[in-house]
Amino acid sequence: MVDSERLRSWLKQYHNPDVAYREIMSVTNQYRGLHPEQSLYNFNDGSRMELVNLSGTIPVRYKGSVYNIPICIWLIDTHPQNAPICYVKPTSDMSIKVSMFVDQSGKIYLPYLHDWVPSESDLLGLIQVLIVTFGDQPPVFARAKDTDPYGANSFMPQPSGSFVPYPTTYPPAPPSSNFSGYPPYPPTSNNAFPGYPPYQTPYTPYPITGFGTPQPPVGTGTIKEEHIRESLLTALEEKLLRRMKEQFQQNQAELDTLKRTQDELKQGKMKLDSILSRLEKEKNDLDKNITMLQDKEQELDKAIERISNEETIDVDDAVITTAPLYKQLLNAFAEEAALEDTIYYMGEALRCGVIDLDVFLRQVRTLSRKQFMLRALMQKCRQKAGLSI
Rank of each mutant, 00 (worst) to 15 (best):
M1N: 05
D3W: 00
S4A: 13
R8F: 08
S9L: 11
W10E: 02
N16Q: 15
D18W: 02
V19Q: 08
A20L: 02
R22I: 04
Y31T: 05
P36V: 01
P36L: 00
L40Q: 12
Y41M: 03
N44G: 15
S47W: 01
M49R: 15
M49Y: 15
E50F: 12
V52L: 02
N53M: 07
L54S: 00
S55D: 03
V60Y: 00
I69N: 01
L75F: 00
Q81R: 14
N82V: 06
P84G: 01
I85K: 05
D93V: 09
D93W: 12
K97A: 06
K97I: 05
M100I: 12
F101T: 03
D103A: 07
H114D: 13
D115W: 12
E120Y: 14
S121D: 05
L126I: 04
V132C: 09
D136E: 09
D136Q: 10
P138V: 04
A142V: 03
D146C: 08
Y150L: 05
A152M: 10
M156Q: 04
Q158L: 05
S162N: 08
P165K: 04
T169N: 13
S177I: 08
G181V: 03
G181Q: 09
Y185Q: 14
Y185D: 11
S189M: 07
N191W: 04
F193V: 12
P197A: 04
T201E: 01
P205S: 07
P205N: 09
Y206N: 04
Q215E: 06
T220F: 01
I223C: 02
E226W: 15
I228S: 09
L233N: 13
L233H: 07
L240F: 08
L240A: 07
L241F: 10
E246Y: 01
Q247G: 11
T257V: 12
T257G: 07
K259D: 08
L265Q: 13
Q267P: 00
K271N: 09
E280A: 11
N289Q: 14
N289M: 10
L293G: 03
I307G: 09
I307D: 15
E310M: 07
E311A: 15
I320R: 01
A323C: 10
L329F: 07
L330N: 06
L330S: 09
L330D: 12
A332W: 01
E336A: 13
A338K: 08
L339W: 00
I355H: 02
D356I: 04
L357R: 07
D358P: 01
V359D: 06
T366L: 08
K370L: 10
Q371V: 01
F372L: 14
F372M: 13
M378E: 03
Q379A: 08
Q383S: 13
Q383L: 15
Q383A: 13
K384G: 11
L387H: 12
S388L: 14
